[in-house]
Amino acid sequence: MQLDQTHVKVRVRTLSEIGDLSLIMLRHYPRAIFGAFAIGAAPWVLLNALLLYWLPIREASYGLEDEEARAQLLRYGWWMCVLVFLQTPAAGIVTTIYLGEAVFEQRPTVRSAIKKARSQFWRWFPRLAIYRMAVPAMVLAAMMWGSDGDAAVDVFLLGMLLVWALIVRGARPFLPEMIVLEMCPVRSKDPAAITLRRRSKALHGPGGGDVGSRFIVIGMTLIVIGASFLYGMTWVQGVITGKWKLGLMTLLVYFPLSLWLISGIAVLVRLLAYLDTRIRFEGWDVELALRAEAMRQFGDEDSPIAQDPRSINAKRVAQTTVKQDQTAGVGS
């Protein structure tokens, strides 16, 4: 493996260029990317169906035209949007691993990505599915199953979970990459080790404002793309069948599908933004060139992805932090 001969050219990119590169990656790996994401998202899709599909099915039995039905369908759409948003980081783990390999390898396999995701399950699941509120929101949805709704739960409590997730993910969007690609240890007895918290601070700290603004712009763009997917599918159905009214097909298939499609794209864009952040703030392109030359001169080494947390800048940050801690200890 030649670290300076990557499948995706390692260089600084603007946000629009990251969008263009995402389309190129989708063109080169359409089945693999969406297939890997479908495998990771499948359990969440089934759980969402069990938790929420009863709502439109119940309202369809009475009719979908009255105001009460519209209110319940609005409630269904709100819950589905929030759940998919919260579940996306965990659902995209297989895709993240696959794309991390695709940067360096011409033909990565989805099977190997699935195997790695399983081996690291207890590292990423608590932090991406529980701490980032996906599982708590699903528990809340299960508690509301069969009810007519409660504004305190449907609006206020679920909204608070969403706000918390927005703040955390906006400030620390690259946590999945640090967990499964950089393999940062969660805790370590070695004071110089690049733990997950220390690595997160080193990567997100220098460009916090830029990372947050990109998060907002990407989110707004994906909302527009998702609406285009939804309206496109309903338009095709209307042209073919002549049925233009809102029905169960739109509610149970097209609407969730459009949400998961933009979620898959979001995982791809996030990884490319992660690479760009490392290049701009850590000189990752220079590091790869130096390590590639070292490999040619002195022999092979372990996976480049697994060794990334030991990058030069991250190590400097860790050593600085340790020195500060030691100085504070001496002063006290």
Rank of each mutant, 00 (worst) to 15 (best):
A38C: 06
F85N: 14
P304A: 15
L166I: 13
G205A: 04
G212L: 01
G238C: 00
E17P: 02
D154M: 05
Q307A: 14
R123H: 12
L3V: 07
A49Q: 06
L128D: 00
E67F: 15
M144I: 01
S112P: 04
A117H: 00
M249D: 07
L161D: 11
L46Q: 10
W164V: 15
A69T: 02
T195K: 04
M249S: 09
T250P: 00
A141I: 05
I312E: 10
Q307V: 09
A137E: 10
A266G: 12
H28G: 06
G35P: 00
W235G: 05
E293D: 10
V110Y: 11
V239E: 09
L157A: 14
L251F: 07
I223D: 06
G212C: 04
R214K: 07
V211S: 01
R172N: 12
T109E: 15
P206T: 07
I24K: 09
E282Y: 06
E67Q: 15
R13Y: 00
L83D: 09
S112L: 13
T95K: 02
S22V: 03
I240V: 13
S188F: 02
L271R: 10
V110H: 14
W260I: 03
M25A: 09
S188C: 02
R198Y: 03
V155H: 04
R198G: 03
E67P: 11
D20V: 06
M1T: 05
V224W: 00
R172S: 10
L246M: 02
K201A: 06
V224M: 07
F255T: 13
Q319S: 02
F34T: 01
I33W: 05
A328K: 15
V10Y: 08
V45Q: 11
A117W: 00
L83Y: 07
A49E: 00
A71K: 15
V286K: 10
E105Y: 08
R118P: 04
R172T: 14
L128R: 00
K189G: 15
K9A: 13
V322G: 02
L272G: 02
Q326F: 01
F85P: 08
A193P: 02
E287H: 13
G329S: 02
G209I: 06
G331L: 11
S311Q: 06
V236S: 00
I57M: 15
L268E: 05
R118L: 11
P126L: 09
I167P: 00
G92M: 04
K9H: 11
T96Q: 15
L162Q: 13
R169L: 04
S61F: 09
T234K: 05
L166C: 14
Y62H: 11
G208D: 03
D4E: 04
G205V: 01
A292Y: 08
L64P: 03
I114K: 02
A141F: 08
R316W: 05
H7T: 14
P191R: 01
L74K: 09
T195Y: 03
I130P: 08
Q326M: 05
M1R: 06
A227T: 10
I218Y: 03
Y62L: 13
D308K: 13
R187S: 08
